[in-house]
Design a protein around this nucleic acid. Structure first.
Lengths: 151, 151
DNA sequence: CGTAATATGTGCAAAATACACAGAATAGTC
DNA sequence: GACTATTCTGTGTATTTTGCACATATTACG
């Protein structure tokens, strides 16, 4: 078990590292970099949504909104735009006809795949020089951390 | 050195964990939680900025804007509002008089301290059940990761 | 059945953001 | 030193993004 003193000592530095990481990930320029690396453009606000749908779809608007931390009405409109662009499709869920499940189309999947590829390339650069063991360890601990946060 | 196959295998899961963590950290509701835990309110957009200034100040507007991933004109206006609230102050930098350094006031520092306290409390909950070794390991690897990303 | 709760979406107003531009200070070059 | 380019900051303006109030449709539950 983590000792309180130990936590107080290490937490600030760890939090700072987190902030740094999030700063890099949040940079809007980064999305556009990824997109242009994939040879595409997409409105800024739609990008995270497409990624979320690709990863978690089929998914309802409310659940999607919870995930990205925005109002469901905002997300509803943005999904509409993604739909107009042919990147996602909506269909009434069979079990619960209130829900209009959002799912990526082939076109949307192709786009998100290209983004994944670009992202993997970046990861390769970042982790060049790391040992297999450290990398694996970080993967495990990050997963545990994410789970602990969500719970 | 990380093998390419190893990276391809583990990266998707690691990236997913990162997304999950950032989703939690980005949730506006989380800021408000922290604030209300500290017994305060603050406009949503100003919150991350105050934190950044408290942690990294004295700091110029452009550098601040880079950190939070928004246009410098946006940040300039937001800093003005923080100034009106008495949470930060601006002063011309001595070495470079183009720069108007932003720095937290006592009032701003008090607020950010209370937020830090609330955050530490949350961290305590998240990491209860972790071993000292795992916690320390995560701290080290996150720092290395952050540095590798920035470089 | 009747009431409450949930999922979605539209109208409208506010908040947040970026682009174009400009002034002030510095850096670099000759 | 003079000249040009770059950097930092900030204002005017338009666009984008967002949330609240509200309405409809469906499900959940007593």
């Amino acid at each position: 078990m983590v000792q309180n003193t130990h936590l107080s000592d290490l937490w600030p530095g760890m939090h700072e590292a987190l902030i740094d990481i999030i700063a890099v990930m949040n940079r809007p320029a980064r999305d556009e970099e990824l997109l242009s690396a994939a040879g595409l453009t997409l409105e800024r606000a739609l990008f995270p949504l497409l990624i979320a749908v690709a990863k978690r779809g089929p998914i309802g608007v409310v659940e999607l909104a919870d995930g990205v931390g925005r109002d469901h009405t905002t997300v509803s409109r943005q999904v509409s735009r993604l739909e107009e662009l042919g990147l996602v499709a909506r269909q009434v869920a069979v079990r619960d006809r209130r829900v209009r499940e959002v799912v990526v189309t082939d076109k949307g999947r192709a786009l998100s795949d290209r983004i994944d590829t670009a992202r993997l390339e970046i990861a390769r650069r970042i982790f060049s020089g790391w040992s297999d063991a450290d990398f694996a360890q970080l993967a495990v601990l990050l997963r545990r951390f994410a789970d602990a946060m969500s719970g």
